[in-house]
Amino acid sequence: MTPPIKWGILSTGTIARKFAATLNQLSDCGELAAVASRNTDGANQFASEYIVPKAYGSYSDLARDPDIDVVYIATPHSLHYENAKLCLENGKHVLCEKSFTVNAVQAAELFELAREKNRFIMEAFWTKFLPAYQLLYKTLAEKTIGNITHFRAEYGFAPTGARYIRKFDPLLAGGALLDIGVYAIGVAAMLLGYKPKELYTSALIGEYGTDTFNSIMLTYENGPTAHLVTTIGSIIDPLAVIYGTKGHISLPNFTALTSFQVTIDNETPYNVDSPFLVNGFEYQIKETERCLLAGVRESTIMTHQNTIDVLALMDKARSSWGLSFPCEI
């Protein structure tokens, strides 16, 4: 019998907690074996809350633990590159939060290192693994709304206090684009393709030197267009719409899609539902473990090139705004 895959979690923030809670509910997946924080107290508190056997006060201690198979990285964007590199160099497989790195060059370097070390690595773009999107692909392939002509997505939230400052901190590669713009671009790429013909963009740069609002227009060789708006500081419910020659499909909460509404000209709209087993994170966990058990080093669902292509689009957008981060210099 194959022993269960042993997971480590790097960081103890909100998204790390969601991941831990999800993994602990999956009886058919591996086990959460270790957690690391920047200090021992934080790691111990997390370990106690989520019943984790080992707690480390440094990331390097977790990376060197010989019992850990794969590490989930949930640190800020600016740390993803060095954290993933640390884990790979210590022989660990990696599932790293989005945005995977700050730029496409960093991502390419990590993928090359993973190949050299024969380790699995994948961006934790959990949205792409959701069952509702598989049903959506089928609906689109059947030409239910005809040919796609346009895709629109918008999303915004308004943090307060210390969280507001942290979301915009350039030292953490903050701003709306890397935090939530990656969702809009990622879903547009899933539906229309990862290689648009042109990108047009504008942004508002806030008091901390990072983007508070961004607007991106994509055009594709075969005709479709996309308009993507993301912002931190204004509450905009996440909504996407796919327009076609015969109707449209609405994707409420497109980042965490569980249902969508199909409207065909002159017909009554109908819903297609696909609820989560837990909270949506379970599907990327299952894909990671499927690959590890099969000895596969790259997911065919979320490929390395997918990650590089999305980062390249974000690089191009930031370049046009004149926005770079200290960790890139």
Rank of each mutant, 00 (worst) to 15 (best):
T210G: 08
D265M: 08
N279M: 12
R290L: 03
S215T: 06
A188S: 13
H150G: 00
S202E: 15
V102T: 13
E116S: 06
A240M: 09
I185N: 04
K143C: 01
T212P: 01
E298D: 07
K92Q: 01
H80R: 12
E207Y: 03
D273A: 15
E112N: 14
F129R: 03
P76K: 12
Y164W: 13
W126Q: 04
Y208F: 12
A107H: 06
E116N: 10
P238F: 12
A317L: 02
D315T: 12
G209F: 11
W7N: 03
T245M: 11
P224A: 08
V105C: 09
A124R: 00
S319V: 04
L88Q: 06
V35C: 07
V70E: 03
T258M: 12
I242C: 05
V105I: 15
R17A: 14
S324Y: 10
C87K: 07
R166I: 03
G322Q: 11
K138V: 04
F129D: 00
A20E: 11
M314V: 04
E207S: 14
K6H: 13
E289K: 06
T230R: 02
G161E: 06
E142M: 04
I329L: 08
L257N: 06
A20I: 07
G244I: 03
T255I: 10
L178P: 00
K98W: 04
A141W: 01
L199A: 04
N90A: 05
K117T: 01
P4C: 11
T149P: 11
I145A: 00
F213D: 09
V105L: 09
Y50M: 05
A16N: 11
F281V: 02
L191F: 09
I185A: 09
A124D: 09
P238Y: 09
F46P: 02
V296N: 07
L62W: 01
R64K: 15
G206D: 14
T149G: 07
L79P: 01
Q305A: 04
V70R: 03
A63D: 02
